[in-house]
Amino acid sequence: CHSECLGNCSQPDDPTKCVACRNFYLDGRCVETCPPPYYHFQDWRCVNFSFCQDLHHKCKNSRRQGCHQYVIHNNKCIPECPSGYTMNSSNLLCTPCLGPCPKVCHLLEGEKTIDSVTSAQELRGCTVINGSLIINIRGGNNLAAELEANLGLIEEISGYLKIRRSYALVSLSFFRKLRLIRGETLEIGNYSFYALDNQNLRQLWDWSKHNLTITQGKLFFHYNPKLCLSEIHKMEEVSGTKGRQERNDIALKTNGDQASCENELLKFSYIRTSFDKILLRWEPYWPPDFRDLLGFMLFYKEAPYQNVTEFDGQDACGSNSWTVVDIDPPLRSNDPKSQNHPGWLMRGLKPWTQYAIFVKTLVTFSDERRTYGAKSDIIYVQTDATNPSVPLDPISVSNSSSQIILKWKPPSDPNGNITHYLVFWERQAEDSELFELDYCLKGLKLPSRTWSPPFESEDSQKHNQSEYEDSAGECCSCPKTDSQILKELEESSFRKTFEDYLHNVVFVPRKT
């Protein structure tokens, strides 16, 4: 048989008469490798580009789960590009990614509803959504962080984005990388972005840091009482949809009607710091009717980097990364020049730590249904340095008659930039024990000054392991946590139920 035959053949030295091919099969003959313009397919066939392209389009058009959109890589027609490569849609070739590779997620039936953290986790790592997304989240724990972890990498949506009755959302900033909504599939009414009845939605994105392009379709905003109209108009300008909307697409009466839409800028007039305090004062603000001013709200939190936005980490279910302080308005003076500047002394802060701070007014709604208010920009203030805590785990070892090696770990709280350490030492008198000992005694162990690591005695271990207080009263049991108490109650309830079950099964009433 021919060298490319495997198993047997019907005619000697003829690659077209093989029972099976050793390498690849091409047009009725066995070959060692697939010549151009053919590609290896499933490690035994040679196919042309049209064959591989037909497989790709067949799966793409069917949208069946589990099928493969075949691509070409290293002269092979394979189910998908290997790690580190992405497909070129024009020629199906796998090309190296520039940075992290995109991950295209194809949605069944063309859309997916995100109504819980669990459903959001199914899209973790996706960068391109081939379909439409509907966000409908009523509640949950730590929602802002969970949504950002699972949806934060999405850069492109081919269909539309719909935010509907998501009472738990305060902001859409968890879509931190969303840059493009194509609108290839539109919501009824030709809408590519749809926001309806979101009672706590206050911000779409921080438009000073976020760009969003909507290729096709219109915007729809109705019944978002805490979303200011200025935020919607800003989205029109940034996304390129200005002029597409009709009169009733953006409701003037049901958007922002319960919001404090600040239209003035508060400026800080005085800032002073110490290692654990920050004193702030800002310019006074009074609405047209000074009785509408209820006070100020001061927001602050630790910020290692200057990239904080107002609604980071917030949701309507209680999660809030900001510390909020309510401040009463100052006494009002008739003389504008003698107006008191409101302020606040922030206490209990960490030394040498940068804080993000902003302040906003708290006002009631005027009778004319106009909203007044003022808010400052987010500023960054760093507390002063102070003395560091003591170095940890000092170790001293003498390696000769004239040297001592000293080692330690950095302090747990540096409280500033540590530039150097101060080492103090003092000579001590020799131990009298060394002169009084009889060095001729056998088995004498000389006193040693070398360091030995501390260890816990058996008594201390027994005390720590004991669940009861000892007789001397030195140790006591740790208080039980809520989960331990709940577990004990469940076990007790189970024992009672099981005992009742045994009584009912074992003891049967005697027939009379």
Rank of each mutant, 00 (worst) to 15 (best):
residue 322 W to N: 03
residue 210 H to M: 09
residue 186 L to E: 05
residue 390 V to L: 10
residue 322 W to L: 04
residue 405 I to H: 03
residue 158 S to Y: 09
residue 383 T to W: 00
residue 328 D to G: 12
residue 265 L to C: 05
residue 193 F to C: 07
residue 381 V to I: 12
residue 107 L to G: 04
residue 167 Y to T: 11
residue 243 G to A: 14
residue 205 W to F: 12
residue 180 L to K: 07
residue 141 N to H: 01
residue 333 S to W: 14
residue 230 S to W: 03
residue 304 P to T: 13
residue 347 R to L: 10
residue 134 I to S: 10
residue 225 P to R: 04
residue 341 H to Q: 11
residue 265 L to Y: 13
residue 343 G to C: 04
residue 179 R to E: 03
residue 352 W to Q: 14
residue 279 L to D: 02
residue 168 A to T: 15
residue 121 Q to E: 02
residue 303 A to I: 08
residue 138 R to T: 03
residue 113 T to Y: 13
residue 159 G to R: 02
residue 194 Y to E: 12
residue 351 P to C: 07
residue 103 K to G: 13
residue 157 I to A: 00
residue 345 L to V: 12
residue 309 T to S: 14
residue 248 N to P: 11
residue 321 S to A: 07
residue 292 D to K: 04
residue 358 F to M: 10
residue 347 R to F: 06
residue 119 S to N: 08
residue 287 P to N: 05
residue 352 W to M: 13
residue 347 R to I: 06
residue 155 E to A: 10
residue 215 T to S: 06
residue 325 V to K: 02
residue 113 T to C: 13
residue 270 Y to V: 01
residue 250 I to S: 09
residue 310 E to V: 02
residue 358 F to W: 02
residue 263 N to R: 08
residue 163 I to M: 12
residue 212 L to K: 01
residue 124 R to V: 06
residue 234 K to P: 04
residue 326 D to P: 03
residue 115 D to S: 12
residue 296 F to M: 06
residue 312 D to V: 11
residue 121 Q to N: 13
residue 106 H to C: 04
residue 128 V to H: 15
residue 376 S to K: 01
residue 137 I to R: 01
residue 395 I to S: 10
residue 200 N to K: 02
residue 209 K to C: 12
residue 405 I to N: 06
residue 322 W to I: 03
residue 319 S to W: 01
residue 108 L to Q: 10
residue 216 Q to I: 05
residue 141 N to I: 05
residue 223 Y to A: 05
residue 223 Y to Q: 03
residue 358 F to A: 14
residue 239 S to P: 04
residue 146 E to W: 11
residue 300 Y to P: 00
residue 188 I to K: 05
residue 384 D to R: 13
residue 317 C to S: 03
residue 241 T to F: 11
residue 226 K to R: 10
residue 217 G to N: 02
residue 125 G to L: 07
residue 331 L to A: 09
residue 354 Q to K: 03
residue 313 G to L: 03
residue 285 Y to S: 07
residue 133 L to P: 00
residue 231 E to L: 08
residue 188 I to V: 12
residue 331 L to G: 15
residue 400 S to N: 07
residue 123 L to T: 04
residue 291 R to M: 07
residue 133 L to R: 00
residue 394 P to L: 09
residue 138 R to W: 00
residue 252 L to D: 09
residue 327 I to D: 01
residue 260 S to M: 06
residue 215 T to I: 15
residue 333 S to P: 05
residue 311 F to R: 13
residue 374 A to H: 11
residue 166 S to P: 03
residue 174 F to H: 08
residue 307 N to R: 06
residue 316 A to M: 03
residue 223 Y to D: 12
residue 370 R to H: 02
residue 357 I to F: 15
residue 332 R to V: 12
residue 104 V to M: 11
residue 377 D to F: 02
residue 406 L to F: 15
residue 222 H to V: 04
residue 198 N to I: 02
residue 292 D to Y: 06
residue 371 T to D: 04
residue 120 A to Q: 05
residue 249 D to V: 12
residue 268 F to H: 02
residue 145 A to G: 13
residue 254 T to A: 11
residue 305 Y to N: 00
residue 181 I to K: 00
residue 143 L to W: 15
residue 263 N to V: 05
residue 341 H to D: 07
residue 192 S to D: 01
residue 255 N to F: 08
residue 222 H to I: 03
residue 411 P to L: 01
residue 325 V to A: 15
residue 283 E to N: 14
residue 313 G to A: 12
residue 268 F to Q: 00
residue 171 S to K: 05
residue 189 G to V: 13
residue 304 P to S: 05
residue 151 L to K: 00
residue 113 T to L: 12
residue 135 I to H: 00
residue 185 T to V: 11
residue 133 L to E: 00
residue 122 E to S: 15
residue 349 L to N: 00
residue 396 S to L: 14
residue 317 C to G: 08
residue 261 C to D: 04
residue 403 Q to K: 01
residue 103 K to E: 14
residue 156 E to A: 14
residue 196 L to D: 04
residue 132 S to K: 01
residue 332 R to S: 10
residue 249 D to L: 11
residue 175 F to S: 00
residue 131 G to F: 02
residue 340 N to Y: 06
residue 356 A to V: 02
residue 289 D to T: 05
residue 394 P to Y: 05
residue 219 L to P: 09
residue 404 I to V: 07
residue 143 L to G: 15
residue 280 L to Q: 00
residue 404 I to C: 02
residue 289 D to A: 10
residue 313 G to S: 09
residue 234 K to L: 04
residue 192 S to C: 03
residue 367 D to K: 10
residue 399 N to A: 10
residue 190 N to M: 15
residue 194 Y to D: 09
residue 351 P to T: 07
residue 256 G to R: 08
residue 364 T to D: 14
residue 371 T to G: 13
residue 348 G to K: 01
residue 172 L to P: 02
residue 125 G to Q: 13
residue 256 G to H: 10
residue 331 L to Q: 07
residue 407 K to S: 11
residue 248 N to C: 15
residue 267 K to G: 08
residue 342 P to M: 10
residue 194 Y to R: 08
residue 378 I to E: 01
residue 139 G to W: 05
residue 397 V to P: 14
residue 263 N to D: 14
residue 107 L to D: 07
residue 129 I to K: 00
residue 220 F to A: 06
residue 180 L to S: 06
residue 291 R to H: 03
residue 325 V to W: 06
residue 341 H to G: 07
residue 277 K to F: 04
residue 264 E to L: 13
residue 210 H to W: 03
residue 184 E to W: 10
residue 162 K to E: 03
residue 120 A to D: 01
residue 201 L to M: 02
residue 169 L to M: 06
residue 131 G to N: 03
residue 279 L to P: 00
residue 401 S to P: 08
residue 169 L to V: 08
residue 127 T to L: 10
residue 150 N to I: 14
residue 273 T to P: 14
residue 258 Q to N: 15
residue 127 T to D: 13
residue 217 G to R: 14
residue 349 L to H: 00
residue 115 D to V: 02
residue 153 L to P: 12
residue 380 Y to Q: 04
residue 126 C to V: 02
residue 235 M to W: 14
residue 139 G to L: 09
